[in-house]
Design a protein around this nucleic acid. Sequence first.
RNA 1: GAACGCGUAGCUCAGUUGGUUAGAGCAUUCGGUUUACAUCCGAAGGGUCGGGGGUUCGAGUCCCUCCGCGUUCACCA
Length: 702
Amino acid sequence: MDKVYDHKKYEADIYKAWETSGAFTPKVDKKQKPFCLIMSPPNANDPLHIGYAREMSTQDILVRYHRMRGEPTLWLPGADHAGIETQYVFEKRLKEKGKSRFDYDRETLYQMIWDYVAQNKHIMENQLRQLGASCDWTRNKFTLDPDIVKVVYQTFKKLYDEGFVYRGERIVNYCPRCGTSFSELEVDHVEREDEIYYLDYGVVTIATTRPETIFADVAVAVNPKDSKNKRLIGKKAIIPLINREIEIIGDSLVDPKFGTGALKITPGHDPVDFEIGQKHKLPIISVVDENGKLTNTPQQYTGLSTAVAREKVVNDIEDTGKLVKVEKIKHVVGVCYRDKGLIEPIVSKQWFIKVEALAKKALTAIKNKNVRFEAIKFEKIATHWLKNLKDWNISRQIVWGIRIPAWRCDKCLEWTVSGGAPPAECPMCGNKKLTQDADTFDTWFSSGQWPFATLKTNKPGDFDYFYPTAIINPAYDILPFWVIRMIMLGLFATNKVPFETVLLHGLVRDKHGVKISKSKGNVINPIEVAKKYGADALRVALIWGSLVENDSSLSEENIKGQRNFANKIWNISRFVLMNKSETLSTKPKILKRPRAKTEEDKKILEGLKKATTKITNALEKYRLNEAAEKLYDFIWNDFANKYLESTKTRRNEAQPILEYVLATSLKLAHPFMPFVTEVIWSTSFARDTKDLLITSNWPEKH
RNA sequence: GAACGCGUAGCUCAGUUGGUUAGAGCAUUCGGUUUACAUCCGAAGGGUCGGGGGUUCGAGUCCCUCCGCGUUCACCA
């Protein structure tokens, strides 16, 4: 054995040995309760970032522990096509080449993105291997696999047939640059300063930040409890420039204290106005199109961007003397979470899911602890979300994704939803010409079905055996996007919760606790770190010091410290094994607990028992930091510094105990530092090449 | 405006149902050329647990209040 552990010499070979041994693939045993964890599928197109490395470390530790406990353990890997994210990145590449998505037809564009993603998918997968992920690659899935798509289609059809899907003319958050609408969750809000214009509407003055939308006004609303303005209800207001008369109505959503207390109702371009408009059965006028340009207005404004139009409209209103005043206002506007540009609320026809009943079921499941949140704070957040969800817009106007299986009859314009294949003819009128909806599903609609979709499309019997899965472990920032959707859709499609425990994990921050971002220049590349200090060191550093659910800080000093720990284990082994006992060199089978001869012997065996108990209990409670710290303390202080030193004068007598404690320590350390422990095991305790630590048995607590 | 957190050693964080002298890693100081490891060993210093009040035999832990910080949500036109 070398003086210092050199991870570069071993890691790749060890991983290969695990993978080819079949250790990652569980042996289904109906008598035993399995442990199943579905990986949060990383973006197929992106190299792993440090946060995902943390997630991987957490999951691999849990998976290796349960596997060693003898439970049939499945960690199911996968990759996400990441709809808008990927198309956005791809379009940026097109732009660099002076092209845009509009230069290609749908099929060509889809194929181009497909090829691009296919080229990159293996990068992320190999990185998972480098970090030691013991997932079952024979069950690897991709969100665009045809069989997955089929499951998604079936769920959509079931939702449609049972009345949970409707095609509605609704106000949506539209990003003119991305060319697609978004759900409310994908809109960020930023505060900024704008002008607010007070316009003369005849009997009433209106304050608005969006004067360019006055052509779409259909009413003015005041609060019926507003003593100053309620007398206006029933009267007529007059829109400047076009002098169209609109009615003044009463609605409690209007804040009497804001502006003049009178709100112009523009259902076509404002969510609140839309709601008020629906309530009062007002018409919808659209004057901003999907490119963010004015349309359906007096000719001089048509085709102008909203910003330019605003200036012109204000000038023209001023010319007619109807501009009362202009003030500055700080307010919150919606921006696209992708490109941070303004979101344009527009009305369009899209597919929606009625979430109320689905959410209610999810809430019941949470309340009854059919789904258990490991951290109460996240249960509160999930509950809060589920109680406040609005109907879910699942249409996206992009090509990279699963195309919505809905066809419209060219003749009678009725929609037909199919489980996949195009309908031969329109069921309403028998017409044979139908056109498929151009939109694709929101990525979260399909990934919300991931637990059952992956198990139903894998090996026969997987779904029955492994579902509901034991645990799901994503970052807490996708709780509303992913976790609550999985609960809702899982319950809907399978009548069962998709997982029993939700263990959310925190974000990785830099050593000062600052959020990691490209603009701050504090990005940590997990693969570079793993190459430099070893995957084992990185893994432990990532779970060291803070609870799974909390944000953690990662420093190079910490990683170095764990590299030292790996080396410490290596050198303990070197010391113990340079003087192998007769038993170990001739019959290296499972070592029995030897008898203590001295106080030190007694103490170390006692300490090992306590450490085993503590580590096991901590792992059962997902307290990985506690388990790792106990492991570190026991191996370094109790075993190496105290006991091992004490044996130097009585090596031969102590040798069986040294070997026993080492072997047991290797097992306890294996989930955390799988590579170095496996290397040592294979060169010492292993009976043959098939005897691997990964499939050895976890030490008993006693 | 609301929800959810956080405030413990110089730094980053643990502290599970309230129970001895409040812990870890890193950093600091001092001392070690011990043939397993200098990616090491031994020792030391360092905290009025954000402030105040309360419950209790007993509070870092429970309650109230104030201060400071963070994250997320939200229809202020």
